[in-house]
Design a protein around this nucleic acid. Sequence first.
DNA 1: ATCATTTATGCAACCGGTTCCAATAAATTT
DNA 2: AAATTTATTGGAACCGGTTGCATAAATGAT
Lengths: 337, 337
Amino acid sequence: MYKKKRSITIQDVAQTAGVSVSTVSRVLNGKVDVARETQDRINGVIKELGYTSNLAARSMRSQKKNLIGLIMPDIAYPFAIEVMKGVNRAIAESDFDLLVYTTGDVRKSGRASAEQKYVSLLTHSISDGVIIVAPVVAEFNSDEPIVSIDPVMSNPSYPSVHATNYQGAIDAMEYLLSLGHKRIGYIGGRLELESANRRLMGYQDSLAKADIPIDQELIKSGDYTTVSGVTCAHQLLAQPNRPTAIFASNDQSAMGVFQVAEEMGLRIPEDLSLIGFDNIPESKYLGLTTVDQFIFEMGYTATQMLIKLINDIPLNDQTFRMQTSLVIRSSCRKIGG
Amino acid sequence: MYKKKRSITIQDVAQTAGVSVSTVSRVLNGKVDVARETQDRINGVIKELGYTSNLAARSMRSQKKNLIGLIMPDIAYPFAIEVMKGVNRAIAESDFDLLVYTTGDVRKSGRASAEQKYVSLLTHSISDGVIIVAPVVAEFNSDEPIVSIDPVMSNPSYPSVHATNYQGAIDAMEYLLSLGHKRIGYIGGRLELESANRRLMGYQDSLAKADIPIDQELIKSGDYTTVSGVTCAHQLLAQPNRPTAIFASNDQSAMGVFQVAEEMGLRIPEDLSLIGFDNIPESKYLGLTTVDQFIFEMGYTATQMLIKLINDIPLNDQTFRMQTSLVIRSSCRKIGG
DNA sequence: ATCATTTATGCAACCGGTTCCAATAAATTT
DNA sequence: AAATTTATTGGAACCGGTTGCATAAATGAT
């Protein structure tokens, strides 16, 4: 039913207006060398026929598309949403429009291989540049600017913005330590991501510095989801000598801990201190003490960097390190206090 | 710096593999009539060169793009985000990928005129179909399927899904009325949207049915934002004979009421009952009693409808009415109770 | 009145693919 | 061995635009 209806092309406009296709193209692109009179006639026809240009065809020849692409495997989790909001803000302030590309599910696409596909999908077709969230490949062969958020490695070949994950973890741990905690459980994130590694390192180094031996039983590896938070929390809290505090490597997994604690009748912070990482909006309501990594700002900054690249303005820094900051709420308490 | 690098095209592949462009195209599209041996060689070259096809060029000729477009003027408010999540879910379950298009700000685009532009932008270029959120125009000239969410009119020319806004408002009001409230303030939404009108109607009709005269002083018109909620709440609560309850036509404006109440030292629900509409995630944390309109499900359903249209499966109903449901939390109380 | 410019427009190539059709070679049939 | 069929492959038109170049008409200069 839909396939038959052919849409109105520039040819139709040209024919109706009695001019050549090139002339129509010129008025569409605001070129000056077309007679006023002709312009008006063509514009009239365009309106009358309801013509709109075909993006695909256009972007195949012309340079500027005024479109920025944002690639994320999944857009339904808080981190992604915050990034989007930041990008959205920067977009709103610019001439560019935004195209968010997603497959809806990480698993739907075999990561690495798919990633390159998506990049070029948007890249040399449709947009002027691309922001990619949590990419896992080291290098893209793309003819367009790319900025990444939270990349695999600390120093990828493309510009990137990421939080000071290591320092953030140190801050979280020193806070817990300062409250007198000695048995601190850790719920890790997706280890293929640099952020997860850095946070884990921060956890371990803090312990070492405080002369507390590392107990492997206290380190559980999750994948940044609430579900994995639940699993890990169970493992952690079922132990006979259970930890007095848990450092969840992101807020989503911390939410899992909240759930398990409630199930088990453990009060937070009375019976268990909990600290997260990210500071997603929900954390405010839950009173979760966490490390703010300013996700919104990361999205905003990445977009600004990308726009600079598109306009051939050199970047001050290839990688922007977003300073994290501990936000203390009510999920931690002095031990025995 | 970026402009020079030409990306790898099908021509390059063909040349390197020593075959014609058409042959490469065939193996790319999995056509059977190519010799095994040739296929392997070409696939090798493709991998070696890191070739990926140009979406724009491809979609210009071929039918199926396996891409769905979602158009929203702004993606940074809760309603939009919930819709996206729903769409995301349906996408994840399907063969399709998703392209979300936004200008980042309603004001950046002159609505109506721009709207058509965006639709055709995605429509006859790149995607197989489009979902458009809160469109204001009555008809689109598009050669592709369209489904709208929360359209201007109750019966637009295109398929749509929207909540039972009128009934939802009635439910909210009857609840308030049943608690003994007689002076009920109303904070309206964007009146160009059908949803805002229907809810207002529900408010008025409920009052009429309960034989309570309508006081224009109690009806303030906002625009669905928290900011406007604040403004309206001020106007409502500054009155000498202030309302004992407020019905905010969406949760975001209800959040504005929370703020103002706190400022004025009014406790909710002790001093003021408050009810919202939408049931956005934040409402749970705020304990806001509200009318759930299942935004996630609307996005999910719209996507399923669209996929049906794309596959030429007829729809049971042109317009899907999502049943609303009152969710009672802790922001309302019996008057004098 | 003639020649040089300028202005307005059309022609045709091109962007990177897809697809129909024809051509060639190999395999089968008679 | 000739005729027919089948399996591969290349050629070329086409999708809907943009753009450099050529041409024609109009204007200005001499």
